[in-house]
Design a protein around this nucleic acid. Structure first.
Lengths: 110, 110
DNA sequence: TTAATCAATCGTAATATAGCAATAAAGTAT
DNA sequence: ATACTTTATTGCTATATTACGATTGATTAA
């Protein structure tokens, strides 16, 4: 997408943007919500679940893993993914922090 | 980016992905947090604030406006932007909904 | 060993995004 | 009317993303 000027922004803003990316594609949202429901940490089910090619799902998983929001462990031939609790709560607190910064304008602004 | 297969996903997942895009770029995060602080709804200040070209900022504003998370009103020559309260609370509740779906695994899964 | 299975990676095509300069559009002021 | 200010739009380039088929690597089953 053309080179994002990361150095222009604060670390906080860059961090949120990275976390935001996890939620910026429906496939990743679907993966995340699936892992939330199935705490048992499935995988490969995701391929049929999503209706995407195996390579595509693998790519999304890689991205989510890169962000840190999920983690995977090998179990024989297959790999089991689940939400990373620490990162999840970090993401949550970062976003909640932002969400709560908004004060409804009894004083209308626009 | 290659055509996202929107029809593969639920409306909920697609909606979250759209909202997520608002937070998936540091410039947009910077714009949002700035508007949160300055409830007074500035604009054009953003150009110097961000260190991006005017056209680039305008593009991010357009995108955020398209998502609905911000709104702008013309004030003479300039335009005043602010957070859209209704959409903001919708976004907030959607994300909080997801964040709270996670139950920390006393039962470790991976 | 040989098949079979599963997931990661590679290579490629199509499309979207980020960024900017230049221009247009619309108001304000002189 | 003319100049000035401010924002939106256009046109363009470079880079990132999405998606997939094919291949590779690793593990299990026969």
């Amino acid at each position: 997408m053309g080179v994002t000027k990361t150095q222009n922004y604060t670390d906080e803003h860059n961090e949120i943007a990275i976390f935001g990316k996890a939620f910026s594609h429906p496939a990743r949202v679907a993966i995340i919500t699936h892992l939330l429901k199935a705490k048992a940490c499935i995988n490969s089910h995701l391929v049929e679940e999503l209706g995407l090619a195996q390579a595509t799902v693998s790519q999304h998983l890689k991205e989510l893993k890169g962000i840190g929001i999920i983690q995977g462990t090998v179990e024989g031939t297959s790999v089991s993914y689940c939400i990373n609790p620490e990162v999840w709560s970090l993401v949550k607190s970062r976003f909640v922090e932002i969400f709560n910064q908004f004060e409804d304008p009894a004083n209308d602004c626009c």
